[in-house]
Amino acid sequence: MNDMTRVEMEPALRFDAPPSTSLFAHARHIVSENPVTGVAFGLFGLILFAALFGPSLVPYDPLASDTNAALQGPSRAHWFGTDQLGRDIFSRVIVATRLDFTIAVASVALVFLLGGLAGVTAGFFGGWVDKVVGRIADTIMAFPLFVLAMGIVAALGNSVTNIVIATAIINFPLYARVARAEANVRREAGFVRAARLSGNSDWRLLLTQIVPNIMPIMVVQMSLTMGYAILNAAGLSFIGLGVRPPTPEWGIMVAEGASFIVSGEWWIAFFPGLALMTAVFCFNLLGDGVRDLVDPQRRT
């Protein structure tokens, strides 16, 4: 009956993971049924590649200006053209991937931890924890989210870290609510009651019965909010918050190109905007794909 044996035994008793073959087969089925998801996975690989290796592969230094080559349209030398300082837009767009991607991943990871934890605890235990988490979420939700993010970054100061924090905060209610609802439903489920009768403590119930079962839903939530996180960060830097010039970042590059649109130099704003759009589009499709993959109703 001592705890030592129990701890030692745990790793050997691995029943929990569903058979991986069926998951793989299901993934193949999803992709074959909806090729768009396959495209999204491909795009995601491309974005990941650009974020990891982009800076060492681009043809020009993204910060080097060349006044002789200012405001040139797309050409063989400059695929996406050059901006008012003669910087190569293609290099800047590729290099920016890492920053935008990092902001999105960091903020989603942060809110996943905080919101997920708060929501699960609130849903499972109820009582005052639930009230406090609910009140915090309600207060955040009482603001138009982008406006709140503006206020937060303006107050905390203009930095990339603060963009990550602000994006995480405005997504908090979403995560907390989903996690809370899922935990709350499962608290009364038969299998949780059965586990209670088997002598599991509250925390053990939470960790072995509740969390593994709501994890898929939270992962779907994460992939669905990635796109929104990138959009939000780019929007903030578009109005001059967070990232400062000359740092290459998609939002700020679109802002720099905005004033040239009316005079016809479309490429300065277009390519970073296109990159941003592609990334968000890819994440949204990916989110739908992951949901199909995880949704047990579609797995028969």
């Binding site: 029943f15 929990d16 059965a194």
Partner: peptide, 16 residues
């Protein structure tokens, strides 16, 4: 409803 969808039959019986 009374069986954890992520536990095998053996794991469920073994829980108590």
């Amino acid at each position: 409803d009374s069986l954890n969808p992520r536990f095998t039959a053996e794991r469920a019986i073994a829980d108590p």
